[in-house]
Simulated scan of single mutants.
Amino acid sequence: MAAAKNVSDETKNEAMKVAKATQKPGQTKERTKLIAAGIEKGIAEYKKQHKNKARDRDRARKQDIKAKAKTAPTTESETSEVTAQSNVHLLPWGLLVISWIGFIGFSLMK
């Protein structure tokens, strides 16, 4: 009876509609009410399971976010930024040195 108190009126009405829709000729009102009660319990159980699954999915999603936040940004992004910055600074100097070597080499060949 404790489970019946937690069931909403909407669920009770929906269960009664389904029970009446599947009612067979000559079926008593008590039998229909018992069927509706069974459907009510099924709907309540389904909602409970659905709620638990949603809660579990939410927990897993939050744990994934926390795990990614702890590992990814601090180590990988900092090292890639340092590498990218050092390569950017070396490129112009490297091209300058190569051009001067080429200029000196061309001047000596004449």
Rank of each mutant, 00 (worst) to 15 (best):
K47F: 13
A21R: 06
A21W: 09
T28P: 12
V18P: 10
T22H: 14
A36W: 00
A37R: 02
G42N: 02
K47N: 09
E30D: 15
G26S: 05
K41G: 11
T28H: 12
A37I: 03
A19F: 01
M16T: 04
K24H: 10
A37C: 07
T22W: 09
I43Q: 05
A37K: 10
M16G: 04
Q27E: 01
E30P: 11
I39A: 08
E30I: 14
T22R: 12
T28F: 09
K41I: 05
A19M: 03
E40F: 03
A44D: 00
A36G: 01
K20R: 04
K47D: 03
R31W: 09
Q27D: 06
K41V: 01
V18L: 15
A44P: 02
E30W: 12
I39C: 00
I39S: 01
K33D: 10
A37S: 05
K20G: 13
K29E: 11
G42T: 06
K29N: 11
K24F: 05
K24G: 07
K47G: 00
I39Y: 00
E40I: 02
A15H: 00
P25R: 10
E30K: 15
A21Q: 02
E45F: 01
Y46F: 13
A36D: 09
K41A: 14
A44G: 09
A15C: 03
I35C: 06
I43H: 04
T32K: 07
E40H: 01
G42L: 00
K20V: 12
K47R: 00
E40K: 06
K29Y: 09
G42P: 04
K29F: 13
A15P: 01
K47H: 06
E40P: 00
Q23T: 09
R31G: 06
Y46A: 12
Q23V: 03
Q23K: 08
K17C: 11
P25E: 14
A19T: 03
A15I: 04
K17M: 05
E30F: 12
K33S: 10
V18M: 15
G38V: 03
G42K: 01
A36V: 09
T22E: 15
A21P: 02
E30G: 13
I43A: 10
Q27K: 08
A36H: 04
I43M: 05
G26P: 06
Y46V: 07
G42Y: 02
T28R: 11
K17V: 00
R31Y: 04
I35A: 14
E30R: 13
E45G: 06
Y46S: 12
Q23G: 10
L34W: 13
K47T: 07
G42W: 00
T22F: 06
Q23F: 06
G38F: 13
K24D: 02
G38K: 01
L34F: 11
K29T: 01
I43W: 10
A37N: 07
I39R: 09
Y46Q: 11
Y46P: 07
T32H: 01
I35L: 10
G26R: 02
A19Q: 08
L34M: 12
Y46N: 11
T22C: 10
M16I: 14
K41L: 07
